[in-house]
Design a protein around this nucleic acid. Structure first.
Length: 282
DNA sequence: CTCTATGTTTAATT
DNA sequence: GAATTAAACATAGA
């Protein structure tokens, strides 16, 4: 599941593992994860290349090589990167491996592991459309209520659906959206354009808090491996339990194809655009 | 066996 | 056309 904080964690780990690293060999034969790159091109293009850096936008990772090639990695629902000793055998569900030698002389093997294979690896010489289409990243670029209010005010879609749109905000997934809306006291089904400036500001604060809290957590692994332990959230995964704020039982409902948990008592539903404008003017 | 899952893309329907 | 909804992908765990 990795969402923004999990992918950020993965980026930090990859950065540490790949600092001053040269790729000795790379291999992947999984045509579902490795798309549309061919297995032959994957090994050929990466071998001998020096790693220039690792960056992240939203849920995408980008490993930059010294010849201009970039390897993009999306972890999907269950993907993660792990580091192993150079001679270690394959992991369960391993989909790709990159063997590297670092400046400090250490050799290691990075493995992309992904049970469900919903993740992707894309090799390119320029930024791919999926990367370019991403909206502002709340951590890398920051978010403020003023700029977020622009896309939200232009759509009648449910506010939760908008928060999950990667072109509106990069990296927000079902957990972050659920938590931010609970923190803001806003019903996830609220019409996006019926939010007041103050509502949007509350969502921004809720998002920041959820991201910070998730980043600060201890991580056993990276990517899906380190994601969302039980009891770490206020609303997500707590349907039927009392709302931590008002005590009413949290309810679960499908919205935009995703399971959504919220408090029916203290998360107020915004429906009127006119009322939002009136609140803004007040 | 049934249901659900942190994500995205594509097809079908309104 | 736009907007919504469902299905699909593939696997593990409750």
């Amino acid at each position: 599941m990795p969402e923004l904080p999990d992918v950020e964690w993965a980026a930090r780990q990859l950065r540490a593992w790949l600092r001053g690293a040269v790729v000795r060999s790379a291999r992947s034969t999984d045509r579902r994860v490795l798309r549309p790159t061919s297995p032959a091109a994957f090994g050929r293009a990466l071998s001998g290349r020096r790693v220039r850096g690792v960056s992240r936008r939203g849920k995408w990772l980008r490993i930059e090589l010294d010849d201009g090639h970039r390897l993009f990695s999306h972890l999907g629902m269950t993907g993660s990167w792990v580091e192993r000793d150079a001679g270690a055998g394959p992991e369960r569900h391993e989909r790709a491996r990159i063997d590297v030698a670092r400046d400090d002389g250490r050799r290691s093997s990075l493995r992309y592991v992904d049970a469900r294979r919903l993740g992707r690896l894309v090799l390119a010489r320029e930024d791919i459309p999926e990367w370019r289409a991403l909206g502002p990243d709340p951590l890398a670029d920051g978010v403020d209520a003023r700029s977020l209010a622009v896309p939200l005010g232009r759509s009648r879609r449910a506010v939760k659906d908008m928060l999950l749109d990667q072109s509106v905000l990069a990296g927000v997934g079902n957990v972050l959206a659920t938590e931010a809306l609970w923190a803001a006291g806003i019903d996830p089904r609220s019409r996006s354009d019926a939010l007041s400036r103050r509502d949007v500001a509350k969502i921004v604060r809720g998002l920041r808090a959820a991201i910070e809290r998730d980043l600060a957590r201890d991580r056993p692994g990276c990517g899906a491996e380190g994601a969302s332990p039980e009891g770490a959230h206020s609303a997500y995964g707590r349907a039927g339990q009392p709302c931590p704020r008002c005590g009413a039982p949290l309810v679960r409902q499908m919205l935009a194809g995703r399971s959504t948990t919220f408090c029916p008592r203290c998360q107020v539903r915004r429906t009127s655009v006119r009322a939002a404008r009136a609140r803004d003017d007040a």
